[in-house]
Design a protein around this nucleic acid. Structure first.
Lengths: 155, 155
DNA sequence: CTAATTGCAAACTATTTGCATCTTG
DNA sequence: CAAGATGCAAATAGTTTGCAATTAG
């Protein structure tokens, strides 16, 4: 269910396989993206996570690196309604739920749904387009998430 | 297939029904959004379209109006990978195709697909979420659109 | 009339760019 | 060592805000 979390050597190899130089900055940025799995961070989020342990890293480098990673298909840019750029190290085909209240983007992995769409689009011909991938975007609201979590009192 | 295009009186009524004051600016902005149906314009796009005929309109008003319209559910904000805010006057449930080459967002209306998903999610229970809507996001490339169009030579 | 809306300009936030310096392969 | 990457600072988008003047209901 969880994607295999990679160690630095593994991450380094991924970066090289993507045709990029494996600099220290790129390795720690990739590592941060893995740590933020499911959180769909912005460049700023990644930068903030890295800064304490890497005080010399620059925000500009984070921006450039994220672009390079997307270009190399190591990560994806996530669609956003809010107009900021977000990133996702999870490259397995999956869908997202957009919470209208909290503006969170939550991963939704549903094998049955993926299969259903796979079947549909293998039959269906979309005119003038070569379809590379698809994902469902669900919009809704978290149902009382705080209440659920705090239901069991801490004694 | 096409959504009914409304005249100014109709647009004005929509705005009022949305609980907003029907100012001249709002009417022409709504009109511009209808004219740009399928183009998923930015605030700037709308502004540029309006300026010639409405030289006194301000970009700030366009931003505020688009926000009000989204709030009132008269239009939708469209998800974007590129990080800008785009708007869609088409409020009928439909999907979008994202062209990797041109970065265009193209409407994809497929009744069978909508029905398929409707059925799927009426059975499927998404944990902790009340799903309000769904849409499929297709990613791909336009297949030689220029070539296709120019195949018939103009003699 | 009065509450909401507009236009304008200034303020912000997010992102990109140019370039001298440093690093990886 | 050469090509490519980094850090920094300045530049550029894109969007929001505050407020006096205006307008719709």
């Amino acid at each position: 269910m969880e994607q295999q979390s990679l160690n630095r050597a593994g991450l380094k190899q991924c970066i090289i396989d993507g045709g990029l130089k494996a600099t220290h900055q790129r390795i720690v940025i990739f590592e941060a993206l893995e740590a933020l799995h499911g959180h769909h961070p912005t460049a700023e989020d990644v930068f903030q996570l890295l800064k304490p342990a890497n005080p010399s890293i620059s925000l500009g480098t984070v921006y450039k690196t994220l672009d390079s990673f997307v270009e190399a298909a190591l990560i994806r840019r996530v669609l956003s309604e809010e107009g900021g750029k977000r990133y996702d190290a999870n490259t397995v085909s999956h869908s997202h739920i957009y919470c209208s209240n909290t503006k969170e983007i939550i991963d939704y992995e549903d094998a049955e749904l993926e299969q259903l769409l796979q079947d549909f689009f293998s039959k269906r011909n979309v005119e003038n387009f070569e379809i590379k991938s698809f994902a469902v975007q669900l919009t809704g609201n978290k149902v009382e998430p705080d209440k659920q979590i705090s239901i069991k009192p801490v004694n």
